[in-house]
């Protein structure tokens, strides 16, 4: 099936303007500092079109840090459901990927993928800002290739 001009334009726009929203599901704040770090002048995510949004309604990519606690489980689900399609989830940090050192703890539900589907995993304690930029880029590149195949 060939795509119309408008569909291709929208695909191009999606690739060039990923807006992120940052959610802390129970992280120790290490990865959160690194996510904020990626937005500062040194790394400047805006040159790649990434903007941090305040509300899930405007965001394309949910950047989630930390192992999901029982307290944040429902909220994470709610925020994920509030995001409009197409949406992506990135688990940033070892705890978000698998639960990390908190796995098996009495108040921990598990990694982010135990609650919402995750598109990209980024291990690290804490994940480096360069890696965060790279993972968003790779995720969109992969998605673009998949769009092309269709």
């Amino acid at each position: 099936m060939t795509k119309t001009f408008m569909e291709r334009a929208v695909d191009w726009g999606r690739r060039k303007s990923p807006w992120i929203i940052h959610f802390n599901a129970g992280a120790c704040n290490g990865c959160d500092i690194e996510v904020v770090d990626a937005l500062t002048p040194r790394f400047d995510l805006e040159r790649l079109g990434m903007l941090q949004q305040g509300t899930p309604r405007h965001a394309d990519v949910l950047v989630c840090t930390g192992a999901v606690t029982l307290q944040t489980r429902d909220r994470l689900k709610q925020i994920y459901n509030q995001m409009p399609e197409p949406k992506f989830v990135i688990a940033v940090g070892s705890c978000a990927c698998s639960g990390g050192i908190f796995d098996g703890c009495y108040c921990i539900n598990g990694g982010v993928d135990s609650v919402v589907p995750v598109d990209a995993y980024l291990p690290g304690c804490a994940a480096r800002p360069e890696a965060i930029i790279d993972v968003v880029n790779k995720l969109l590149k992969k998605w673009e290739e998949k769009q092309k195949e269709e």
Binding site: G13, S17, G49, D60
Partner: peptide
Amino acid sequence: ADFLKLLG
């Protein structure tokens, strides 16, 4: 790009 993305 932002505008087109939001449209889609």
